[in-house]
């Protein structure tokens, strides 16, 4: 598999703060790679360095073999970027937005008409091509935003939180388009703080926090690293400072203790539950609700960082 994005030991600092701290990963042809992390983890900063908008403090980036800072026009010709916010011209029509993108990305004039028509068809907006974007719904704008990044047929697609704030119908449509792009051979790097999106879309995932890559692998592989353990989520009068003492023979691990909530990893939820409840009661804690869950990427993130993705 040809590597279309190579990020090696990337560092980006703002004064004393290290927004990206030694990040390394790569994305291959036809692959969807997810950078998974909470807000402020450094995902967007990393993507902006890849696009060439932001110079790195150190480390290197190669887009289809080109350095975005040494050979910016060659590197940029290979990538399409979809930022978190839809950056469309609302006073232009969908058709005009795509044509404008064609002008910016140097699509040959002879091909503009066919590409625009093809993309409008692909995102389901062919019948709204002549309408101004200002009249579009949020989902339609997200789809058009994605199409704008595709007019020059980039090898690498950078999607920064592409599914945030999108209604279920548009989400399904966008997911389908992204999967199709990967099948067609595009390399896709997407950032998300939504574990479900990462699990649904990504072949490989990198978990990032405070600018560092904490874990990387396939979704199945990462989940397997957690073992076949169950999760017990207990609601009650818990707090961070004094979690209840659990019997050592249970092999239980407290993943997090927040005010009102305790998350415990155990070998078998059904067997451990009575003893966990008894331990909580013995510690003077009352439990109002218990949930038994299977481990997910979010669990792994919790285990690695001690906090949840949406913190």
């Amino acid at each position: 598999m040809k590597r279309l994005l190579e990020v090696s030991n990337l560092v980006k600092t703002y004064g004393e703060r290290r927004a990206v701290d030694g990040l390394s990963f790569d994305v291959g042809e036809g692959e969807i790679y997810g950078l998974l992390g909470p807000n402020g983890a450094g995902k967007t900063t990393a993507i902006k360095v890849v696009t060439g908008l932001l110079p790195p403090t150190s480390g290197s980036v190669k887009v289809a073999g080109f350095d975005p800072f040494a050979e910016p026009l060659k590197a940029k010709a290979q990538l399409g970027w979809v930022g978190q916010e839809t950056s469309l011209y609302e006073d232009l029509t969908a058709d005009e937005n795509l044509r404008l993108a064609c002008a910016l990305t140097r699509v040959p004039r002879s091909e503009v008409r066919s590409r625009v028509a093809e993309l409008l068809e692909a995102i389901g907006l062919a019948d709204r091509a002549r309408e101004r974007v200002s009249s579009f719904s949020g989902g339609m704008k997200r789809r058009l935003h994605l199409a704008v990044a595709l007019v020059h047929r980039p090898k690498l697609l950078l999607l920064d939180e592409p599914l945030v704030g999108v209604d279920p119908q548009a989400r399904a449509h966008l997911t389908e388009v992204i999967e199709r792009l990967a099948r067609e051979g595009h390399a896709v790097l997407l950032t998300t703080h939504d574990m479900d999106d990462a699990q649904r879309l990504c072949g490989r995932v990198g978990i990032i926090d405070h600018g560092k890559l904490l874990a990387e692998g396939t979704v199945d592989g990462l989940q397997a690293s957690l073992g076949e353990r169950d999760l017990l989520r207990l609601d009650g009068d818990f707090d961070e400072s004094s979690p209840p003492a659990l019997p050592p023979e249970l092999g239980a691990e407290i993943l997090s203790a927040h005010p009102g909530e305790l998350l415990v990893s155990v070998d078998s939820g059904s067997e451990a539950l009575p003893r966990v409840l008894a331990a909580a009661e013995a510690g003077g804690r009352s439990v109002t609700r218990v949930t038994l869950e299977r481990p997910t990427l979010e669990t792994l993130f919790l285990k690695l960082t001690g906090r949840e993705l949406r913190d």
Binding site: T51, G52, W81, G83, E85, S87, L104, T105, R106, H152
Partner: peptide, 18 residues
Amino acid sequence: ISGRLARAWTSATPPAVP
């Protein structure tokens, strides 16, 4: 502010042109 210029600057066009 909306990112439209930033998007233009990620394309293969010299930054001063847009």
